[in-house]
Write a protein that binds this DNA or RNA. Structure first.
Lengths: 146, 146
DNA sequence: GTGGTAGATAGGATGTATTCCTATAAAGGA
DNA sequence: TCCTTTATAGGAATACATCCTATCTACCAC
């Protein structure tokens, strides 16, 4: 159990990353369950148990996790958001409260599972596709009507 | 011809905006043809003919044009980009040179023209949908192979 | 035309997210 | 245990976007 294949330590090793306390702390917080976080949020959270961690380290660590495929990065309202759900999916973001939700079944047709590459991108080397819906979540929408 | 319905002056008036030299200059540059610009680019361009224009005015003007539906706003690599092509379409962005292109036929199926709203968003009030493909454009892809 | 007022502009100050730089510290292999 | 490579902390730097305010101007009423 101590070093199972799913432990943060094993995960870092499996991706060729040195195991440091900072990386373990970030991995345990971010990779434990699907979530959306900014560098600032991670920094605040990790500082609770590791007060000396710097913003720089958080950025570097999240960037490495992204390069390893452990995280996806997207942008909303000018902020970089890291997503530990790395299976392909779309997002919706509330313009008011900032809530971000995953869209589980983005494609209406099962045949579209693998998003079809537009004809114009035949000669591109596509690395990522991001789709985001923006508007008011049910709660904020109800408030704005009042 | 002087004040045709398609002149920048008429366009501003039609949207309830006061006609100022600054707004005319921005409108003539940005709205003449479909293009993608940042506030910085607009500022640099307008200053050629109007050296005193401030960044603040550019931001305000572009924001107003957006609120009027004359421009769409999206984000790529942390920058706000304004798009004078307001018909629904997707984008592709080159990670290397920053080029942004419009995708004319984003939906493979004609029936999908109106992007189907995911089931999970039934109770949301959706204002906009953005979809962006990221990778290497043909030119940069060729270079990276060398 | 002219005058008055709501709205626009310039310019600087401010805030904030991200990246850069560098000396020090630590991980992990020999 | 030593040594080399890599990571970290902390501060500096950058860049984008917004806020603030005095001044100016478009345009409506007269």
């Amino acid at each position: 159990m101590k070093t199972s294949n799913h432990s943060p330590t094993a995960l870092l090793r499996a991706h060729g990353l040195r195991v440091t306390p900072q990386r373990l702390a970030v991995a345990e917080y971010v990779l434990r369950k699907p979530m959306h976080v900014t560098a600032r949020i991670v920094h605040e959270k990790i500082r609770e148990s590791y007060p000396a961690i710097s913003m720089n380290t958080v950025y570097l660590t999240l960037g490495q996790f992204e390069r390893c495929g452990l995280l996806n990065r997207f942008e909303v309202h000018g902020n970089i958001v890291f997503d530990s759900n790395t299976s392909p999916h779309d997002h919706a973001c509330c313009n008011r409260c900032g809530a971000i939700i995953d869209l589980d079944s983005p494609r209406s047709e099962p045949s579209e599972q693998a998003a079809p590459l537009p004809e114009q991108l035949r000669q591109w080397q596509i690395k990522a596709e991001r789709r985001i819906w923006m508007g008011l979540c049910p709660a904020c929408n109800a408030e704005s009507v009042l």
